[in-house]
Design a binder for these strands. Sequence first.
DNA 1: GTATTTAATTTAACATACATACGAATAGAG
DNA 2: CTCTATTCGTATGTATGTTAAATTAAATAC
Lengths: 394, 394
Amino acid sequence: MYKSVDATVMRQFNKRTVLHILYQRQETSRVSISSETGLNRATVSSLVDELIAEQFVQEIGLGTSHGGRKPILLRFNANAGYAIGIDLQITHIDTVLTNTRREVVYQNRRQIGTADQPLTPQTLRDVLAEEVHAAEAVCPQSPRGILGVGVALPGLVNYETGRVTYLPNLGITDWSIAPELSEMLQVPVAIDNDANCGAWEAFLSTGISNLLFINAGIGVGAGIILNGKLHRGRDGIAGEAGHTTISTMGVVCSCGNYGCWEQYSSEQALARYLQEQGAGPVDAFAPRFVDRCIEAAQAGNHAYIQSWRTLAEALGVGISNLLQILNPDYVYLGGTIAEAATIILPEIQRVIRHRAMSANKTVPVAVLPPQTVARGAAGLAIARAIDMLPTHAG
Amino acid sequence: MYKSVDATVMRQFNKRTVLHILYQRQETSRVSISSETGLNRATVSSLVDELIAEQFVQEIGLGTSHGGRKPILLRFNANAGYAIGIDLQITHIDTVLTNTRREVVYQNRRQIGTADQPLTPQTLRDVLAEEVHAAEAVCPQSPRGILGVGVALPGLVNYETGRVTYLPNLGITDWSIAPELSEMLQVPVAIDNDANCGAWEAFLSTGISNLLFINAGIGVGAGIILNGKLHRGRDGIAGEAGHTTISTMGVVCSCGNYGCWEQYSSEQALARYLQEQGAGPVDAFAPRFVDRCIEAAQAGNHAYIQSWRTLAEALGVGISNLLQILNPDYVYLGGTIAEAATIILPEIQRVIRHRAMSANKTVPVAVLPPQTVARGAAGLAIARAIDMLPTHAG
DNA sequence: GTATTTAATTTAACATACATACGAATAGAG
DNA sequence: CTCTATTCGTATGTATGTTAAATTAAATAC
């Protein structure tokens, strides 16, 4: 069905534009919005009035004069409501409670079952419910209350239906988690792939509308933002860059193929490199594995330094490939591997300057703080609840 | 600057929607457009009246009744104007003259200098001008005449400025071809990368709004259509998939790296495979090289069959990588290598079913006819001239 | 204190899509 | 054949929403 535009759609579009500006700026005024958008001052006034009535926007006093009457400063009411974001990983769960601007007001990390003894879907669901309740309990009073819950999951998920297709390392398939949780908690629940959540957070916090978020941990995945929208692809499985071939005759992968990028850039790859360096038997699933590898490298252990370097080189190759194909504005690294940023970033950048062509050599690569994925999950819930904000949809 | 919408923008949007429908359908009626768009019948009438006045649309008689008055059939006036599309390759130039629906009314192929003796930019410009004049000479009379010229080029080009950055195999850098030609011919001239032109043609002719066009010839490049728009990236160099690594320790590439996809999937790769198979010294730049390789394989020559198979396998690996990253609706093959479709397609599809994950195994791969790139170049010129049609812009 | 400048609101004008009504044209029932 | 229901297209008036201009409000500069 083709789209058409009438007066209401037109107003909605303009209202959304005004709210977007307010969402991104710390504070601004009606005139300023008018000159930024080209909308008439009267129109801006009328739209802002509506947004104030809906509690999304507040007047917060007067600004500095530019030679005449002082402007009335407006700001996005970040505390109009709250959302809960959860980043489910193999060994632990990160939960955050944020306001509508995704500022964290509460956070929690909880260890869960080990690799040998993964939790059942039922238990996992109950654990998630507990986490949500704990966050709800500390949620401040607000006009719109809890807007929803967003859950980031490490695997193939169907964002539309809220069903999990496959979580490789948790051994879960066909799990109707979002509807179940939503029913239990009486709150809207949205789910998405963890790399997508990270990319979404990167976009919202930077405003950069063409970027990659590389989530490297147990597995490797990419979240792709193009034109300010998440690129999901035909079946919602775009971004599975961990299973692209970087070495046709390489290491065998859990997916059955040879030479997948993930086999050279993940925690398991690090463990393998360590073993090859003679650092003794290494368990990638042991608690604080990556942290200890970082510490060992920083302490000057040669095997660890060399292993990180090998891993960084592989990460650089895969990122170069993505740069060549998509030529984005920015690349962000996330996941446990990204915690080694100071060790691996220089090597990654060296490889990119070597492998990527012309302008792709200059695409910046940076690391985002921990909790990025959880905050992105909260952002997903917010985007679902307030259609005036950037839409998470592909 | 943020965008805002007023009544004129609204009407323009709706008018464009109406024209898009007419562009895609063979014929349709006002009511039909109304129910397809949700626009009121009166609104559609008013918009169609404007389009008829502008010669873009014609009434072509009455349709069949559905139990009442017969609808007046409308059709996009394909012959409202014409455009010239040129596909510049290493060994020859393909020129087409098309109407606004990119239906070819004249075509020409012209051999140019060999690899040993490439033409100078000046000579090349004059040759292009000759080709344009020849096409202009046979162009039928029409209300809007020649809308413009589009040129597809094998390399890095800046679509915005009309300047060539680098054409590797022609040894040309920093060539301000579009402005020069436009000045000479007194016609708007637009240029783009050949893979982008192919992708654009694939989109326009199929209506599939998320697709890849793989142009495999002397080099390998990809045109990427996402959401009905060409994805160009930050610097306009997205789609350089030929220089992604599929084998970290592989063959050295002209770009200086090791294991680029292009080194396994291009005409040169084919030549190398043949040499490895002991088919004697082979020159990839010899006239009709690919044609002769196809004929030899069809005649049952084992070395040629085996070489094509090795090439197809490499093509499959690279395509699988793209599928994993982008999960598009469709993949189209173009360029000289695609002429061997019957030989290589089964092998490519086998590799994809093996390498790609889950739903990516089912993404269709098909071949488009010759002239696809030239027609896409004409489409580029048309898109530039008539802003009511799908915009080629990224 | 007055003039000038800037901010925000009010009012009128304008553009456009929609709802409704109506005429034209047709198929199908009787 | 006639009548009725239906469909297609258009004309008219209304609703919605933006803009332009006028107005009010509030600050600065001299």
